[in-house]
Design a protein around this nucleic acid. Sequence first.
DNA 1: ATAATTGCAAAGGGTTTGCACGAAG
DNA 2: CTTCGTGCAAACCCTTTGCAATTAT
Lengths: 162, 162
Amino acid sequence: MGGRTTRQRKAVTRALAGCQDFMSAQELYALLVAGDHAIGLTTVYRALRELETDGGVDVVRDETGGRLYRLRPADGHRHYLMCRDCGRSRPVDSEVVEEWAGRIAAATGFTAVEHTVELTGVCADCLARTDGGRPSGHEGEKPPCRWDRGPGLQGPVHSCAS
Amino acid sequence: MGGRTTRQRKAVTRALAGCQDFMSAQELYALLVAGDHAIGLTTVYRALRELETDGGVDVVRDETGGRLYRLRPADGHRHYLMCRDCGRSRPVDSEVVEEWAGRIAAATGFTAVEHTVELTGVCADCLARTDGGRPSGHEGEKPPCRWDRGPGLQGPVHSCAS
DNA sequence: ATAATTGCAAAGGGTTTGCACGAAG
DNA sequence: CTTCGTGCAAACCCTTTGCAATTAT
């Protein structure tokens, strides 16, 4: 289950630990490489899949279906509310939903019931940044602050690759 | 918004109407072609995306991230519990979750909050069919009754393509 | 020593796009 | 007529796999 402790796997976990947001395999790869960590894209994919299997990460899918990973808190899996503009995510209290899922399972006779619950929206900051909602007329131009960190990695993300 | 009423679009909607389960674009395409409806795969993709935009279908993603479509009931969107073995799905009562999502939105200052809620499990039939769970030792062989309909389309699905 | 891990390059596979033809309004 | 829709083939792009070299234990 555990597997060997390699430089690469440590780097992936460390990168994840430094990010408070969900990251794709490609993003993590870019981050690592930019941070002078020699690693192959394939290895990143494999490390993440392993982490997923071992329950080390929470996973959501982007609009395209691609997987986004975030280190799972020590106290178990969480659900998140993610900003569609900037990509920042925060865990939300989801007891109600967990219970609901349990009730459904019991009521339907289904076993091994698993649930996927994802919330997305526009955070206050992004709403403000885009002129309060709809005016100005340049809808499609919302600069995704998630990528505002830049292709080169400034801001909070810096700590990911370090 | 509506678009033109073409033979192909009618066929796609009709195929969906005949299916009680979630179907992928490829599946619908296969169904239509097998049912003697001349149509291009591309067209199926486009028709489904349009339906999705117009809110005509509910969408979930399969394990690979691919989209699965199901005609949305007239009274609004629903959430579903789907069997991981046979693929059959049933709408579940999700008021609790809708309310929860609303509360989260209010509490966090996020706007335009959208939610994705999917439940999967193993239905009673499939559980029985696979020897009650784990014995017998041939784990990986669960015959997906979803595909039991066969590559050639027997059973309830027949009505899809008709 | 020995089996797991890495990483490149190539394969894979579902979805989208370019573009000329055809059909709807 | 004029615009929108269609469908083929090619392009995309993320992800996985084959396989020889490398590394942890």
